[in-house]
C-alpha cells in the first residue's frame, strides 16, 4: 500500500450483478456496475466521485463498505494502529470492527432516519451496537455529538419529523460520526438540500474534517459541489473510472473527452459567459450490453477506428493524472468555463 498517509486503497474492484432469466433462473449476462476501478484516499483527504446516474458510483461506495459484496478486487484499509488489512478477506465478525472506522451518510434525510426513533436512539444506535457507550454515558456522548454538528442538544428526545431537511441531514452526520470513524462515504449527501442549506452542510463537513482528520469519499453528480469540496476527483462512466487526478487538474486540464463534455454541460451561473457547449448526443451506454472498445466512443466527437476496437487502458498521462483514452496525450481539451 502506497505511503504512510494512505488510508484506503481500492485495487481492480469489480462488481458484476448477474441478470437471471427464465424458469431456471439461469444467468444470461452481467451488469458490470463497477468494472476494474482503482482509487486511493489519503488521510484527511476528500476524494470526489462524479458521474451520471447509473455509472456505478454508489455501488462503488457501498462495495468499499462491503454493504454490497464486491465480485473481485481488494480494499486495503489502514487501521488505527497503522496495520494494513484487506477488507475483502475479513470474516463477518472481524468486519464489524472495521465498520466502525467507515461510515455512510445518505442522500435523502427523510428516508434515512427511522420516524419512530428519537434522536437519542438514532444517534446512539451505533454506540450501543458497537458497545462503546451506554446509559448516562451514552446520553452525554449523543449530546456532545449533536453540538458538534450544530444541533441543539436539548432536542434529544424529539422525533425526526420535528426537524427540517437540513437538520435531519445533521442528525445523519452525527450518527455517522458516533463511532469516531476515519472514513466517511457521503453518497449524494447534499443533493436533496436547498442551495442555502447545502452550503451549511458543506461547511459543516469541512469543519468536521479539520477537527477529526476525517477522509471523505464524496459521491455527487454536481460538479460545483465536487470542485468545492474535493482534493482529488475520479470521473466514472459506465462502471469504469475514465479520469482521475487532483481537482484543479481535472477542471483546468481534462484529459478525457467525457470529462470535457461534463464540464461544458454544467450551466454557468453567469449570463455573460457564453461558451461553446458540447452537447452529447444519445444516452449513457447500457452497462449490461456496453459498446465495443471504449464505452464512450458512440458519443465521443474525437472517436477514431481504434476506439471502436480496443478498450483504452487507465494510464498515467501526466504526473498524478490518470485517464483511460487512447488519445489522452494528444487531445487539447477545454477545461471548465471561468477557469
Amino acid at each position: 500500500m502506497g505511503t504512510e498517509a494512505t488510508l484506503l486503497e481500492v485495487n481492480a474492484m469489480k462488481k458484476y450483478f448477474p441478470i437471471k432469466k427464465g424458469f431456471l433462473k439461469r444467468t444470461v449476462g452481467y451488469v458490470k456496475a463497477v468494472d476494474d476501478v482503482h482509487l486511493t484516499i489519503n488521510e484527511g483527504e476528500t476524494f470526489g466521485l462524479v458521474g451520471e446516474s447509473g455509472c456505478g458510483k454508489s455501488t462503488l461506495g457501498r462495495c468499499i463498505l462491503r454493504a454490497i459484496e464486491p465480485t473481485e478486487g481488494s480494499i486495503k484499509f489502514r487501521n488505527q494502529k497503522g496495520n494494513v488489512v484487506d477488507i475483502t478477506e475479513l470474516s463477518p465478525k472481524d468486519l464489524r470492527n472495521y465498520r466502525r472506522d467507515m461510515q455512510l451518510i445518505f442522500q435523502d434525510p427523510y428516508s434515512s432516519l427511522n420516524p419512530r426513533m428519537t434522536v437519542l436512539n438514532i444517534i446512539g444506535e451505533p454506540l450501543i451496537c458497537n458497545k462503546i457507550a451506554s446509559g448516562n454515558q451514552l446520553r452525554e456522548r449523543v449530546k456532545s455529538l449533536m453540538e458538534v454538528v450544530g444541533l441543539n442538544s436539548k432536542h434529544l428526545e424529539r422525533y425526526p419529523h420535528a426537524f427540517s431537511g437540513g437538520q435531519r441531514q445533521r442528525i445523519g452526520i452525527a450518527r455517522a460520526l458516533a463511532t469516531n470513524p476515519r472514513l466517511l462515504i457521503c453518497d449524494e449527501s447534499v443533493s436533496a438540500l436547498d442551495v442555502s442549506i447545502q452550503a451549511q452542510i458543506l461547511n459543516l463537513l469541512e469543519d468536521l474534517q479539520e477537527q477529526f482528520n476525517l477522509s471523505y469519499l464524496f459521491i455527487s453528480h454536481d460538479l460545483g459541489v465536487i470542485q468545492h469540496i474535493s482534493d482529488k476527483i475520479g470521473v466514472m462512466y459506465v462502471g469504469k473510472m475514465v479520469e482521475s487526478a487532483a481537482t484543479d487538474d481535472v477542471f483546468k486540464n481534462p484529459k478525457h473527452p467525457y470529462t470535457e463534455s461534463l464540464l461544458s454541460a454544467k450551466p454557468v451561473p453567469d449570463p455573460r459567459v457564453k461558451k461553446e457547449r458540447i452537447v452529447l448526443q444519445g444516452e449513457v451506454a447500457n452497462p449490461a450490453n456496453p459498446p465495443s472498445g471504449c464505452y464512450f466512443h458512440p458519443r465521443c466527437k474525437y472517436a477514431k477506428d481504434i476506439c471502436r476496437k480496443k478498450a483504452p487502458a487507465f494510464e498515467e498521462v501526466a504526473p498524478g493524472h490518470f485517464a483511460a483514452c487512447h488519445f489522452a496525450k494528444d487531445l487539447q481539451l477545454t477545461g471548465a468555463a471561468g477557469q
Binding site: G165, S196, Q198, G224, H228, A336
Partner: peptide, 25 residues
C-alpha cells in the same frame, strides 16, 4: 446576494468557505 454566494460553482475561487445563509426557511 446570499443565494448567489452560497452556491458552490465551477470556476469559483477554491478553498473559499461558502457563505451559507444561516437557519432554515
Amino acid at each position: 446576494l446570499a443565494l448567489l454566494k452560497s452556491m458552490p460553482s465551477v470556476g469559483a475561487a477554491e478553498n473559499k468557505r461558502l457563505e451559507a445563509i444561516e437557519g432554515n426557511v
